[in-house]
């Protein structure tokens, strides 16, 4: 302790680095690898609800899931749902950010207000939408029916899908808005001004300068939005439609919940979680290996 050790000496041993890494490793192991391992193990078992009788069935749960037409239906539905949510949330946020980036009066208040919906929990957001669009109780629901449009998302699958997409996208607009706004503000003004002097129209400037310079932000947000639509929209769907009518709004994550928590079919539910886990790994690989390389920084 009395000797003053040079920095290189401090990091030469193996004990200290491991010690410094330990908290992170423990947290990752305890909260990520252990539950993930449990899910993988559970996906190979067939068990009664109480866990008293358990049978090792190998890949049978996976085979059952992948050959189940209702699961494949949910898979296709999730792709449609996620792309729609991501597209809607990204375009709306980009539009709003471009507007807020201009020098208009009250733009600060405007920006603050746009960020608010992000603080609303998904379930609460869904209840707000329910109060607006419930065919019998909701204000807009009643208005639509009074206007002669047969609005009943409890029975019309397309309307139900539309509602959960809009409600989910609305929740995510604020998040995208903040990133787009920051992205817009980091674009050098000199470039834009030079283009303006050269006679480029605002529309031309947007597509040739702003949009390419925003693309790293946009691609990052695309992945975040897809992951959001895949995993974090459970609350919205649960509060609004419970996956119905029929199976019209049952996404993969909702299916995991129904099979695991409601139907107590843990083996199948775990197998579906593992498939979702693989999908996310795939999505992340695409994000880092492929997309980031091609995006202009």
């Amino acid at each position: 302790m009395s000797r003053a050790a040079p920095a290189s000496f401090l990091f030469r041993g193996t004990a200290l680095p491991w010690l410094l890494l330990l908290p992170q490793l423990v947290i990752t192991g305890l909260f990520f690898f252990w539950p993930a391992g449990q899910a993988v193990w559970q996906s190979l078992l067939r068990e009664d609800a109480f866990g008293l009788r358990s049978e090792f069935v190998g890949m049978e749960n996976f085979a059952d899931v992948l050959s189940d037409p209702t699961w494949l239906g949910a898979f296709g539905r999730t792709l449609v749902f996620s792309s729609a949510v991501a597209f809607l949330a990204l375009t709306a946020a980009l539009f709003l950010a471009v507007q807020a980036d201009r020098n208009i009066r009250g733009s600060n208040a405007f920006k603050t207000l746009l960020i608010w919906p992000y603080a609303v929990a998904p379930a609460v957001a869904a209840v707000l939408w329910l109060f607006m669009f419930h065919p019998q109780i909701g204000i807009f629901g009643r208005m639509l029916n009074a206007a002669g449009i047969a609005w009943d998302y409890k029975l019309n699958g397309d309307q139900a899908m539309l509602l959960v997409i809009v409600a989910s996208a609305w929740k995510q607009v604020s998040y995208n808005f903040i990133f787009f706004l920051a992205g817009l503000q980091s674009i050098p003004k000199a470039v834009l001004e030079a283009a303006a002097i050269d006679g480029a129209s605002p529309r031309y400037r947007f597509w040739t300068i702003i949009f390419p310079l925003l693309s790293p932000t946009a691609f990052f947000l695309l992945v975040v939005n897809l992951v959001y639509a895949f995993f974090d929209t459970f609350g919205v769907i649960h509060s609004l439609t419970q996956g119905g009518p029929g199976k019209a709004t049952e996404t993969l994550i909702y299916r995991v919940y129904t099979d695991g928590v409601v139907n107590l079919n843990l083996g199948s539910s775990a197998a579906q979680s593992v498939i979702l886990m693989i999908l996310v790994v795939g999505l992340t690989v695409v994000q880092f290996r492929y997309v980031e390389r091609r995006v202009h920084y």
Binding site: L155, N156, G157, G244, P245, G246, K247
Partner: peptide
């Protein structure tokens, strides 16, 4: 319930 919904929808 799901099958009833689909029948009532006309599906």
């Amino acid at each position: 319930q799901e099958e009833m919904e689909r029948a009532l929808q006309g599906g």
